[in-house]
Nucleic acid binder design. Sequence first.
DNA 1: CCGATTTATGCATGTTTATGCATGTTTATG
DNA 2: CATAAACATGCATAAACATGCATAAATCGG
Lengths: 269, 269
Amino acid sequence: MTDLMVQERQAEILRRLKQDGRVLSASLAAEFRISEDTIRRDLRDMANAGLCERVYGGALPVSRGATTLSQRMGVASERKKALAATASTLIPPRCTVYFDAGSTNLAIAEAVHEDLVVTAVTNSPAIALVLTEKPLVEVILIGGSLDRVVGGAVGARAIEAMSVIRPDICFIGTCGIDVDGGLSAFRLEDAAFKQYIAARSRRVIVAATREKFDAAAPYAVAAAGQYHCLVTEPGVDPHRLAPLREAGCEIIEAGLQEGRKTGRDQNND
Amino acid sequence: MTDLMVQERQAEILRRLKQDGRVLSASLAAEFRISEDTIRRDLRDMANAGLCERVYGGALPVSRGATTLSQRMGVASERKKALAATASTLIPPRCTVYFDAGSTNLAIAEAVHEDLVVTAVTNSPAIALVLTEKPLVEVILIGGSLDRVVGGAVGARAIEAMSVIRPDICFIGTCGIDVDGGLSAFRLEDAAFKQYIAARSRRVIVAATREKFDAAAPYAVAAAGQYHCLVTEPGVDPHRLAPLREAGCEIIEAGLQEGRKTGRDQNND
DNA sequence: CCGATTTATGCATGTTTATGCATGTTTATG
DNA sequence: CATAAACATGCATAAACATGCATAAATCGG
């Protein structure tokens, strides 16, 4: 182990912490060929900076217990992750893509590949936060009054902020898909905002898990002919997809290799 | 090693920095056959120009220092939590409060009491997300281009969005406090945005942990007389606080019961 | 071409930082 | 509750550092 400077050493400790899930003062001292006192000072500093949790004998990652946010943002179900993985491949490089607020679109944002260079626009703080972690994504945040049911900004200010942006592609969230293939939302302002976005976008994509076909919401967003592509799961009743196909909407079923319909899947939205 | 001009030498240092991931003052001095003092001056200049990060013994690439959000989002230290708890009591009910982006203000937002009824404005997705959890807080999100170093929206669109809002109280973040009590920021656009916010707000509060007094940043935000209240920790050199008091700035020391100064705390903002 | 000014550098001085060691305290565990 | 390991703290020290100053070269202005 070559001599390291303080910052390098602490970075290495942090790396091991992530990799192994823990570090021991004694082992670290032996590996770095320095005294345990110095290691203890390092760990104390790092804990003070919120980079690890200090315990007797070494340190643990902070993610133990109090990771408020990852819990709060809720890990997407495996089904939703598979759907999101497929949907994220529809984003061409170097385009401008809009992510509507919603847990499905959050999953798509998470699935964006690290190497993808795009300009991303969103009205959702949670999605913005996830996209900030992708080094090659430029993030544009649409501001306005936050609707906590929607999880994003809607209303006049948000529409005005969008008026200067014309996305190449947009992912619109939906609360339900009716028998004619129309989309709906729970909130009036949200529905209006979605309509505005869809009208401005060159290509409108809707990603929806299969239980959206069983749900209804009061405010209409778009009819079957008004969006270009639906990404969904296998196992949706073909009669429900037929009107969409007739309206010229491309249907993509994610993860076709498996995915039996058991009827017992729980809605994770 | 043939004699090089300053710019050539610094370019060569930069090249090695990229290649090896680190440089040492002593080795460089030996290789270039010049004194370590000159190398140190080079490194200081380069760090000032944002080309490297200065550390004890040499320098590291900048990409390491700007480890954006993942660290910063890390659980706030106990010290920061104590500071935030005190700062959050300064928010009167039913007012409009602005939270600037930054880890300290994120902690303050987390510390907002569940029973407090306020309108909160922020340019930070992370802070917006935290505030969405508080049922009685109406959240206004300031949009614009997200700066991932700042962790919030800055620039023309953000300023335009703020132009219709006049906060009763605002929490401004700072990257460093100079000897005269002036605030500074790492990014030009961020500094400009902070100035705009401060000018529009009836009451400007700065919350800063004590290591901010040891940090410096290139862009000036506000002089001592331009903010009304500083919330900080015990253990700050009284000589640093004196100019602030003279300028009429209220000083609040959080958690007066304890707070050792170790001098080894690292700036994590 | 010559004096004035700036710039790059090295050296002397005092300060800060990183580290190890000694000492006393706390913690985990049988 | 006994004990050994882990720990915090103060202190010592050497390396790294900042700063002021001196010098020599480079640049500039007339």
